[in-house]
């Protein structure tokens, strides 16, 4: 009787763990997506910076804000883009660390799940023998 209790406990545990792991994986996937977006943005910003560097000093630069183009100073635009690149790189690094941590957690969770599964199987095997 007690073994069946333990079995049920284990099964519930396993289920919880599986759900947890699923959530975790979703989160990881989300973060990966975010990371991808940031990398693309970084690439774009670098391109913009390159173009801005190529512009003459007196060139007119505009920024599209909502439906209107707002005239901007070239130096200002340049500084803005640089800042943006910095921000994105920092964000990417942070995301990388975050994802790494998540993956580590995921692995540990998976291991825990495997252990429970093994215990479950052994109990079931014992039952089958008995």
């Amino acid at each position: 009787m007690s073994s069946s209790f333990a079995l049920r406990d284990l099964q519930r545990d396993l289920e919880n763990k599986a759900n947890d792991l699923g959530k975790h994986q979703k989160e990881i996937a989300k973060n990966h997506q975010l990371r991808k977006k940031y990398t693309i943005q970084l690439g774009e910003n670098e391109l913009v910076l390159k173009e801005l560097d190529l512009l003459e000093e007196d060139a007119n630069v505009y920024k599209l804000i909502g439906p209107v183009l707002v005239k901007q100073d070239l130096a200002e635009a340049n500084a803005n883009v640089r800042k943006r690149i910095e921000y994105i790189s920092a964000e990417l690094k942070r995301l990388d660390r975050f994802i790494q941590g998540l993956e580590g957690e995921q692995n540990s969770k998976r291991e825990a799940m495997m252990k429970i599964q093994q215990r479950l199987q052994s109990i079931q095997a014992g039952k089958a023998k008995a």
């Binding site: 173009e51 190529l54 060139a59 883009v81």
Partner: peptide, 22 residues
């Protein structure tokens, strides 16, 4: 359009330069 919602006034030749770099 240089990207990131930045626009610049350019002549045709300069535009071609930008586009070819792209």
């Amino acid at each position: 359009l240089l990207g990131e919602n930045y626009y610049a006034d350019r002549t045709s030749k300069q535009t071609i330069g930008v586009l070819s770099r792209r």
